[in-house]
Design a protein around this nucleic acid. Sequence first.
DNA 1: ACGAAGCCCTGCAAGC
DNA 2: TGCTTGCAGGGCTTCG
Length: 271
Amino acid sequence: MPELPEVETTLRGIRPYLLKQKIQEVVVRQASLRWPIPQDLPALLLKAPVEEVRRRGKYLLLKLPHGHLMVHLGMSGSLSLTAVGTAASKHDHVDIVLESGWILRYNDPRRFGCMLWIGGEPFEHPLLANLGPEPLGNLFDDSYLYQRSRRKSLPVKSFLMDSKIVVGVGNIYANEALFRSGIHPLRKANRISKNRYGRLSVIVREVLAAAIEQGGTTLRDFVGGDGKPGYFKQELQVYGRGGQACMACSAILKEVRLGQRSTVYCPNCQR
DNA sequence: ACGAAGCCCTGCAAGC
DNA sequence: TGCTTGCAGGGCTTCG
């Protein structure tokens, strides 16, 4: 479900409800996510105030005085705020009850997400230590992509979706950014010029920023932390449009599988 | 070292 | 109507 814009939308939605709030109670109904929720997590969170809420790639980090709660939403996860006393629904795996009377509720049907405790320096955690730069930060540009791609013969779409190269570019936005850049998704990463990588880096940034502006992409059931849906879906030009006409040239969009991910492109516009 | 494939899990839609 | 099959927004891990 969530790509970077959805995670950022969630972050912005939940942050005001969490800052400086002490955690009053933690209810774990289902501990088996991507990795098990640590048994001592509730005790670690109890009575602690949330000092900051941050994002690294698609990971959310809640900073407490003695460590960080790290949350990943996986493919189908979401965080929402609900009033104390609201009955839990199916797949509501964790409640974090705040002293204000709000509950931060974690729901994840497929349980590909995770909820872990980091006691030390968060960016030294194995899941965070090797992540690539943020696509909206200033390290992500033409020379970075050009350098990292020189020894890579894999398809550029796989390259772009590798979180060690750059974080946060999932399947939807990889498809969209490559279409808007005129780059064929199956082209080998090391067969793309520095100029074209420059254009790609700018467009990745633009697409993600626009999606964040719109509150993310609502496909099935995404709802941001503030309960509002995202509106980026109507901006999508190739994702989910295989077999239909290209919006630029009217050629029929092709759809192929690449690393078990649906890949849609215009055979005419993308080279 | 790299790249492709497998796998974790549930829900839903399409096809028979 | 009901069953089976395949696919879904992620990404770590294993295999070749």
